[in-house]
């Protein structure tokens, strides 16, 4: 996973609360076989509306999503995070996130920062004053800045540390590679092995 320190890019406003993961990506796309290629599925129902913010060329290439309260509630589908990442988002700021969504985001290198409702309003106002403006989300300082507006955000220490270090769960586990190898060294010979393939006698 890439290290995350400062996310800089166009900020897209999503002025809706209670955006559930069914809205972020509908169930019909869960049959796909890849973890990538979900960008066209993001907010699938809403983006059929030409007026929807995702269709506004001013925000093309946005990397920071500024969303209303309770973003990512509902179904646990990890596809919701994959779709946001695929579309190009590296950070989402909201006054509150769905628990599972927040956990999934941390696994996939998506910075999910919690801001106050008042700060949400000032960030949205800053975008409105200058649509297409860049945001700068600083994970070291735990602040987000749009134009002159600078607000603090919250993120749990463990997730922040992993993001700063660029560690996904796998990367983290591989720090214990030596212990894993040592464990494998004393693993008993009777334990299951799928290779080489063996057949029942007579096959």
């Amino acid at each position: 996973m890439e290290k995350v320190t400062v996310v800089q890019g166009i900020a897209m406003p999503l002025e809706r609360a209670n955006v559930d993961t069914d809205q972020i990506i509908p169930a019909v796309f869960l049959k796909r076989v890849t973890k990538t290629g979900f960008d066209d599925a993001l907010f699938y129902a809403w983006r059929q509306d030409p007026e929807f913010v995702l269709n506004n060329p001013v925000y093309k290439g946005a990397r920071v999503l500024i969303a209303g309260q309770d973003f990512g509630i509902g179904s646990s589908r990890e596809h919701a995070v994959w779709a946001l990442r695929d579309f190009g988002f590296d950070a989402v700021l909201s006054p509150r996130f769905g628990d599972i969504f927040r956990g999934n985001a941390g696994k996939q290198g998506l910075l999910a920062g919690e801001i106050s409702e008042a700060d949400l309003e000032s960030l949205l106002a800053a975008i409105k004053a200058q649509p297409g403006v860049e945001a700068s989300v600083d994970l070291v300082a735990k602040t987000a800045r749009i134009g002159e507006v600078i607000v603090p955000f919250q993120i749990d220490d463990y997730t922040r540390w992993r993001l700063l270090e660029g560690l996904d769960d796998i990367g983290l586990t591989l720090r214990n590679e030596a212990q894993i190898t040592e464990f494998e060294g004393r693993r008993e010979s009777w334990r299951p092995r799928t290779l080489p393939e063996q057949h029942v006698t007579g096959e």
Partner: peptide, 27 residues
Amino acid sequence: DLIYIDLHLVHEVTSPQAFDGLRLAGR
């Protein structure tokens, strides 16, 4: 805790994105 896994069974529905993840990370 970090727990060792003796046997991993795989089928077609929940594995594609996992393999894709390995490929992306070069693992």
